[in-house]
Nucleic acid binder design. Structure first.
Lengths: 148, 148
DNA sequence: TTAATTGCAAACACTTTGCACGCTA
DNA sequence: TAGCGTGCAAAGTGTTTGCAATTAA
C-alpha cells in the first residue's frame, strides 16, 4: 500500500485513480496551484478527470485538511497546496506572479499584544507580502527588456 | 462646490448624482462594503443606479485611489472602502463577520529584514487577523445562545 | 452489493461588457 | 455639443450541483 492510498484511506476517502493523480500533482508542486492548473496537467497526462471532479476532490481534501485553500487578493482563481501543517506566509512577486513560501512568522508576540488591547480572541492570521523577486528586479533594471 | 464634487473633479471624473451618492455611502460607512451593499442602500433611498454603474464607479474610483478594493480570504464578494491613505490591517470576526480596522502595523522592521534575507523588493503586504470579537466571545460563553 | 465517486451539462454567483441613450461640462 | 457616464441585457469567469452511470470496498 502506497503512502498516497494511506493518506486517502485514513481520511475515509476511497482510493480512486482521480484522487491519487490529483494528490500526486499537488505533492509535486511546491507552488499553490489552481483547479484549472491541475486539470490541465491531468489532461496532458491523458488522465480523464473532469474539472468538476477536480473541484470536488480539492474541496473534500481541504475539509480533511489534506490540502490548504488559498485566495489571493487579486481575486483570481482559488489556489490549493498540500497542507504541510506548517504555519507559513507568502511572498508574492508582482512581476512573475511566483509565490514563495516563508516559514518564519513575525506575529506571535503581536497577536498577544493585540488580544490584550482589543479583547479580540485571535484565532489566526493571514499575511501576504507583495514585491518583486530577485529575478524580476534584475529585469526591471534592464531598461530594454520587455515586461508584460 | 462641495468637497465631494471636488474629490471627483480633481480626479477628472464628472460629477454625477450616481457617483456622489456612492461616495456618500462609502464615506458614511467605516466598514468595507460590497457593490451589492451599496446598490441596496441606493435602492432603499430610491436613487436609481444600476448595479453595473455601481461596479463601474467603484472600479474607476479604485483606479483613482479614491477607494480601496479588498478581497477577503473567504472569496466572497469584493469589498470597497474609502481610501484613507492610512496603512491598515483588519481584524475579522469569525462570529459576526464584522471587520475592524487597526492602524498599527507590526511589520516595518520585519520587511526590512526579509528583504535583506531574500533579495525580494518588498512593496507592500496584506495582513488580516481572524478571531472573535468581544461580543461574540461573550455569546460563545453563553452556552444556550443561538449561533448561526 | 451498495454507497461513494465520477462525468456531464446545466445552474450559480459575482462581475464585466456592448450598445444606445442621457447628461455634464 | 462632444464625449463621458449610465442602464439594460447579455456575456464572462470561476465554481457548484443534480443526476445517472461507474467503481471501490
Amino acid at each position: 500500500m502506497t503512502p498516497k492510498s494511506d493518506k486517502l484511506k485514513s481520511n475515509d476517502l476511497k482510493n480512486t485513480k482521480q484522487r491519487t493523480a490529483i494528490l500526486n500533482i499537488l505533492e509535486k508542486n511546491n507552488q499553490p496551484v489552481s483547479a484549472e492548473d491541475i486539470y490541465s496537467v491531468l489532461k496532458s497526462q491523458n488522465l480523464s478527470v473532469s474539472l468538476s471532479t477536480v473541484y470536488r476532490t480539492l474541496e473534500t481534501m481541504a475539509e480533511k485538511k489534506l490540502v490548504t485553500k488559498l485566495n489571493m487578493q487579486d481575486n483570481s482563481k482559488t489556489l490549493f497546496e498540500i497542507n504541510h501543517e506548517i504555519h507559513k506566509h507568502y511572498l508574492i512577486c508582482l512581476g512573475c506572479k511566483k509565490i514563495i513560501s516563508i516559514m518564519s512568522c513575525p506575529l506571535e508576540n503581536y497577536e498577544k499584544k493585540l488580544s490584550e488591547e482589543t479583547g479580540f480572541l485571535v484565532e489566526g492570521h493571514r499575511l501576504d507580502i507583495y514585491g518583486y523577486c530577485p529575478e524580476c528586479r534584475e529585469n526591471m533594471s534592464d531598461e530594454n527588456s520587455t515586461v508584460n
